[in-house]
Design a protein around this nucleic acid. Structure first.
Lengths: 343, 343
DNA sequence: TAGGTTAACGTAAGCGCTTACGTAAGTGCT
DNA sequence: AGCACTTACGTAAGCGCTTACGTTAACCTA
């Protein structure tokens, strides 16, 4: 006899245990009103049959089985990995699954939100950077509004342009912290390697940086927010502004690329040039030289985002700003000699 | 008028469009048998109402909406991150969501598999290392058997003790590659920092290593499979066997800890001691010194695992072995002087 | 023009659960 | 002994979809 490869249903369990489907359901869910003897028998039968309740049916029938959706920019990026880690930690506390998707542009973002909505997740955490241009966010905004209107919860990380609750790392402050640190060291020629200009995160960090850098001579170039962006950015700097005494990467991942390129060329850090990042991802401390950066505590921010989303929806938009902290390591030092160029 | 915050249903769309629910369903799914005019109208109404079909109901009703479940050991670990990246890449090709959970011990592993089963995922990818002791795997085995029996697909990564299809990185070969490299350099005193002895991955790497190391004098100690494990391992080695000329960490993450501790103590790599890892995670090349390691290509392995799981179930267990490649960087060199100790 | 097709829809039966409600015993009280 | 409660269960109505099948009306063909 070959049974169809189909999971056993609650009804199968009930039949085998000689009870009604209602009693079976109550037994397995620990609902009162079932004699202990019967409940035990049902549980044993269920166990022996390898019964696992269908979460879809359960959620359809009204049971709250809501999972959480997380949308990140790039899975492999430690920045997002740490956020994911924080979100998953909180989700696990209440036995919720986290569905992770990635979306780099607003169009796929909309698609992912729809997919998540189709799966009736209870909450969506948006972890990619927002766009400076509100027009590109319009579709996302609409999709999220639909979700919210139907009872969904949303929390964004580092997106202040979206009309949803948000946890906002102090990107402006992070930029400022880097600037003040370099200023204090005596740098006056700094090359900034920014990520894509259309990202809010980039704009904010840049604002803080340029605002505080004041009189210092600074050049800004834009590159991909990746290791490769750091590599090509470093090359551009060495070509265009070889007299820079500090290279500021707007993310640690970019800084990794910068360090790699400088090493490649035999340029010493921090003796010949100082390098900084932002984020303080886990490996920042393991690089050589260890990277001076700004800690944003992405893991905690991820956790905070889900906690925020879990709260009762409020009438007003909530936004939770988180503090940043400059972490001085060995990739920065006073410029060797203000007159000296990189080569 | 305050509507209950509930997503619009197909029925709502049908009513508004003035058609039956069946026609609405057919229109939205592009099923033949609906006049183009009506289908268009339904689609417009659905769009205007922000309708997103309930994936749970759809899957209940027989539609195939299966997503894939991925169980990893630790989200933050680059080893798993790269696997996840590979799995997600393949899943995205067919619009499937990936549900990521983590489980470090067999008990929570069982729980996670159940959760995934409850959510009726079509496939489960198991990415943590298996246990050497088959007894501890028994419950996992049973849970997976139940899942398979009910039509689920499973693929494991690096677990050969489980009766499921598997992609097997050549851990033995990886260990051997490290051994041969060190032997060729002339090392004869090597300290091995292994992960937990109960892990299959550790046992295999150790097998390959010790098998090839032959006459060389080698000491093996076990530590957590983490950066901290590397730190404490390095301390143990410096205390117990300061005459070692090479420290072999059985994973890159551990090697990071080793490098950190050596740097802390002012011990130069590779001049004073050589260090190796295994995995070739992305940052391995960015460390200082850049880490000599063995590339397992975890991203591709993750992708291969899902492809394997997606195939029609075969009568016999499939296992796909993947090649490894020694990557020599600058953390290894010939021992300075066979007679010299670490201090 | 009667009979047979076909296109375009509607009806209704589930999918596997939860849960409000109904019912039949058992318990305690007067 | 009769009543009102409880307790322990069963019945059945959905949840929001898909889809087999039924029903029209328009369209052919002989």
């Amino acid at each position: 006899m070959t049974r169809a490869p189909r999971p056993p249903r609650l009804l199968d369990v009930a039949d085998r245990a000689g009870v009604s489907i209602a009693t079976a359901s109550r037994s397995l869910n620990g609902v009162a009103g079932v004699s202990p003897a019967v409940a035990d028998r049902v549980r044993q039968v269920a166990e022996s049959m390898g019964f696992v309740p269908n979460a879809h049916a359960r959620s359809l029938a009204g049971g709250q089985e809501s999972s959480v959706g997380l949308i990140v920019g790039e899975i492999g990026d430690p920045y997002f990995t740490e956020i994911a880690s924080g979100v998953i930690g909180i989700a696990a506390e209440s036995d919720r699954l986290v569905q992770i998707c990635h979306a780099e542009d607003p169009e796929t973002l909309v698609a992912q939100v729809r997919l998540l909505r189709a799966n009736r997740v209870g909450a969506i955490i948006l972890a990619g950077s927002g766009m400076v241009d509100p027009v590109r966010e319009a579709a996302v905004e609409a999709e999220l509004a639909s979700f919210l209107a139907s009872g969904g919860r949303v929390a964004a990380i580092g997106r202040h342009s979206l009309a949803v609750d948000a946890v906002l790392p102090d990107n402006v402050g992070a930029g400022r912290a880097v600037a003040e640190h370099l200023l204090a060291l005596g740098h006056s020629q700094v090359a900034v390697l920014a990520g894509p200009a259309e990202l809010n995160t980039v704009a904010d960090r840049l604002d803080g940086l340029l605002g505080a850098l004041g009189s210092a001579r600074v050049t800004v170039t834009h590159h991909p927010f990746s290791r490769e962006g750091g590599v090509s950015g470093a090359r551009a700097v060495l070509d265009a502004t070889p007299d820079a005494t500090a290279i500021v990467a707007l993310s640690d991942v970019m800084a990794i690329g910068v360090l790699a390129e400088l090493r490649e060329r035999g340029i010493r850090v921090p003796q010949d040039v100082s390098v900084t990042g932002i984020d303080d991802i886990a490996v920042a401390a393991e690089l050589s030289p260890a990277l001076t950066t700004v800690r944003l505590s992405m893991t905690e921010i991820g956790a905070a985002a889900l906690v925020l989303a879990d709260q009762e929806p409020a009438a007003t938009l909530r936004s939770e700003a988180t503090a940043v902290e400059l972490v001085v390591r060995s990739s920065t030092a006073a410029p060797r000699n203000p007159a000296t160029t990189l080569r």
